[in-house]
Design a protein around this nucleic acid. Structure first.
Length: 306
DNA sequence: AGAACAATAT
DNA sequence: CATATTGTTC
């Protein structure tokens, strides 16, 4: 068993996403612009929603423009700077509204695990993980909650069998309850996690998610950089919360949306008049028809991660 | 004051 | 059951 340990250790190291791999994976969760661009609005509000108003009435995440909107190169279509003066005057859209449930997709979880792996169990605390993930819209609470569950999952596995893991494409999983932790099973679980408190000395280099591509998200990236660099002061400076819409992604690409299939990432240099077609938002009514129902879930398609 | 964790609520 | 929210402790 020990040998195996060293084995997957090597394998794991090789599978570790390189800094570049991790960085550009900017998983813009929300994509409000996209939602708007796609004419996706809350089905609940039959309002035609005039584009000029750009006022996402209800749930539509008007996403508060926390980051300098002034830097917006083009996209002058929606001016978020000036909220919707009419009607709802003075009420910060982002604030007051409750953010929809975050859906931990395999992709998201993978990023989560990778981040934890790079940080090492010891340093893998919600804040750091969140920063390293660089996922827009992700909050510390989201990560904390997920981390809690994840820890339980690891613990469970420890007790059951030592050889679970099932490396990424591999397959053999030793989950005690496939129906319960199928999400976790979809991601390669770093071995060390299962062992026990690796007190430290994780020689993982603090890769820095350089700021590139994307125009916005400066703060988060800065925070991530600061974290990697060890500038705690910087971390504290950025401090801020974000309000977004929904997140998520298809379980296995088995979705039936006409135009929202998988979008590649052309990575257009510059001059692209439109935003990045990184992902498309998808709204599905989870109305259970009967009573209690009435929930909506918006899922964001992965950029083609795995 | 803020973050992490644990427990509880939805 | 999966997340969110809340409470408690460090």
């Amino acid at each position: 068993m020990r040998e195996e340990d060293s084995n997957w250790f090597s394998r794991w190291e090789e599978e570790l996403p390189s800094p570049e791999e991790l960085m550009p994976l900017s998983q813009t969760l929300i994509t409000p612009d996209l939602a708007i661009a796609f004419d996706i609005r809350n089905p609940n509000s039959p309002q035609p929603l005039p584009p000029s108003s750009a006022a996402t009435t209800t749930v539509a995440p008007s996403v508060a423009p926390p980051i300098a909107p002034s830097t917006q190169p083009n996209s002058a279509e929606f001016d978020n700077s000036g909220e919707l003066g009419s009607g709802a005057a003075g009420d910060e859209p982002a604030r007051t509204l409750k953010r929809p449930r975050l859906v931990w997709t395999p992709q998201l979880h993978k990023r989560f695990v990778d981040a934890v792996a790079h940080l090492g169990i010891k340093n893998a605390v919600p804040k750091t993980i969140m920063q390293l993930m660089s996922v827009d819209g992700l909050t510390r609470e989201n990560v904390a909650s997920h981390l809690q569950k994840y820890r339980l999952y690891l613990k469970r596995m420890q007790g059951i069998s030592g050889g679970g893991g099932g490396g990424g494409g591999g397959g053999g999983l030793a989950s005690a309850d496939p129906a319960t932790d199928h999400l976790f099973a979809s991601s390669p679980v770093p071995p060390h996690f299962l062992h026990q408190g690796r007190t430290n000395s994780d020689h993982f280099l603090p890769f820095v998610p350089v700021a590139a591509l994307q125009h916005h998200h400066h703060q988060q990236q800065m925070a991530a950089v600061a974290a990697a660099a060890g500038h705690q002061q910087l971390q504290q400076q950025y401090h801020h919360h974000r309000q977004v819409g929904h997140f998520g992604s298809p379980p296995n690409g088995q979705f039936e949306h006409p135009f929202l299939t998988r979008q590649s990432q052309p990575v257009h240099r510059i001059g692209a008049p439109v935003h990045n077609p990184i992902a498309a938002a998808y709204v599905e009514d989870l109305e259970s028809g009967t009573a209690t129902g009435g929930k909506k879930v918006l899922t964001l398609f992965p950029t083609g991660d795995d």
